[in-house]
Amino acid sequence: MNLTLKIWRQKNAKAKGAFETYHVENISPDTSFLEMLDILNNNLIHEGKEPVVFDHDCREGICGMCSLHINGHAHGPDSEITTCQLHMRKFNDGDTIVIEPWRSAAFPVIKDLAVDRSAYDKILQAGGFISVNTGGVPDANAIPIPKADADESMDAAACIGCGACAATCKNGSAMLFVAARVSSLAKLPQGRVEGARRAKAMVAKMDELGFGNCTNTGACEAECPKAISIAHIARLNREFLSAKFKD
């Protein structure tokens, strides 16, 4: 396959960025999208140019490090996968592919296609945990948990923190991310204990960090590589509102 790539290049957080056009040739359809970028970078290095910076790590769709807005879609045109799992067979020979970084005020560009997602860490630090110290906990089977609850908790816990939800949302809202954590812990008896505190603290931090307001478009769910449902957002709303009304 021969492809034309329009890639956002930006020297650093403060610099002004612009699209650059590149061409890659003889790409096998079995190549992954990031391998295609590896090939481009290798070519650029040999041509004495600066390679494109992009975040990536595990390349099996679980670490959440890779990002990229490809032809208008977070993680590219395929559904329920991350960019690293996207393969070139999803494109056609001769295609032009536009590659942009996540665009969200809370995710400033660091360089080229890499953005700063530390805001997500900060939200989790505000309350995305169960306050237990190491040791001194009851036996693992001491509290039976209905399978359906454990499964639903796991559905939400599948979040990889990649940022696609906020990057996709027209409002730059991080609600799906926050909801996934709140909901996952809210479905477990261990997590219920400080459920109210958690929901309030995480939402407050999310608002403070400049994420937008959810307007229930569902775009986050559609682009989430783990297909996390906005039903978790409903649960977060419930958790938050009932906590506030009890205040």
Binding site: K6, G17, F19, H69, N71, G72, H73, P77, S79, V98, E100, R103, S104, A105, A106, V109, T168, K170, N171, G172, S173, G210, F211, G212, N213, T215, N216, T217, G218, A219, A222, E223
Partner: peptide
């Protein structure tokens, strides 16, 4: 607030997400 949260730089290319209604994005 949502416009501010979206940031100054906008996507050059946007596409319709599957199952997302037009109305929901233009309320």
């Amino acid at each position: 607030q949502n416009l501010a949260a979206r940031g100054k730089e906008r996507y050059a290319v946007t596409a319709k997400e599957q199952g997302v209604s037009w109305a929901s994005k233009n309320m």
